[in-house]
Amino acid sequence: MYDILVYLFENYYTPQACPRAEILASKLAAAGFEHDDIDDALTWLRELAQTTEQYLDLALKPQTSSAPRIYTDEEYRTLGTEAIGFIVFLENSGALPPPMREILIGCAQATNEGPLSLAEIKVLALMVLWSQEAEVDHLIFEELLADDSQRSPH
Rank of each mutant, 00 (worst) to 15 (best):
M1Q: 12
Y2I: 14
Y2N: 13
Y2G: 15
D3M: 09
V6R: 15
L8K: 03
L8Q: 15
F9M: 08
F9D: 15
E10V: 11
E10I: 04
T14E: 15
P15A: 09
Q16R: 13
C18K: 02
P19I: 01
P19M: 00
R20T: 09
A21Y: 06
E22Y: 00
E22H: 04
I23W: 04
K27D: 05
K27P: 04
L28E: 06
L28F: 06
A29Q: 07
A29N: 05
A31S: 12
E34V: 07
E34D: 07
H35Y: 03
D36Y: 09
D37Q: 02
D37P: 00
D40H: 03
D40E: 05
D40L: 01
A41C: 06
W44N: 01
R46I: 10
R46E: 15
R46P: 02
E47D: 14
A49L: 04
Q50N: 10
T51D: 10
T51R: 04
Q54W: 11
L56D: 15
L56C: 07
L58H: 07
K61W: 06
P62D: 06
T64S: 04
T64R: 04
T64M: 05
S66Y: 00
S66D: 06
A67C: 02
R69M: 00
I70M: 05
E74Q: 11
E74P: 03
E75S: 07
Y76D: 05
Y76E: 07
Y76F: 10
R77V: 03
T78K: 10
L79A: 11
T81D: 13
E82T: 12
A83I: 10
I84Q: 12
I84G: 04
I84W: 12
I84R: 12
I87Y: 03
I87M: 08
E91S: 15
E91D: 14
E91T: 15
N92W: 03
G94M: 10
P97A: 06
P97Q: 02
M100K: 03
M100D: 06
E102P: 00
I103N: 05
I103R: 12
I105S: 07
I105V: 13
I105K: 03
I105N: 08
A108F: 02
A108G: 05
Q109H: 09
T111S: 09
G114P: 02
L116Q: 01
L116C: 05
S117A: 10
E120Y: 00
K122H: 04
K122P: 04
L124W: 01
L126Q: 12
M127A: 11
L129V: 05
L129T: 06
W130C: 03
S131H: 09
S131F: 04
Q132C: 08
Q132Y: 10
E135M: 09
V136F: 09
D137G: 13
H138F: 14
H138D: 14
H138M: 13
L139C: 15
I140N: 05
F141K: 15
F141W: 14
E143I: 03
E143K: 08
L144W: 03
A146Y: 02
A146G: 01
A146D: 11
D147I: 13
S149C: 04
S149E: 12
Q150S: 09
S152H: 10
S152V: 12
P153V: 12
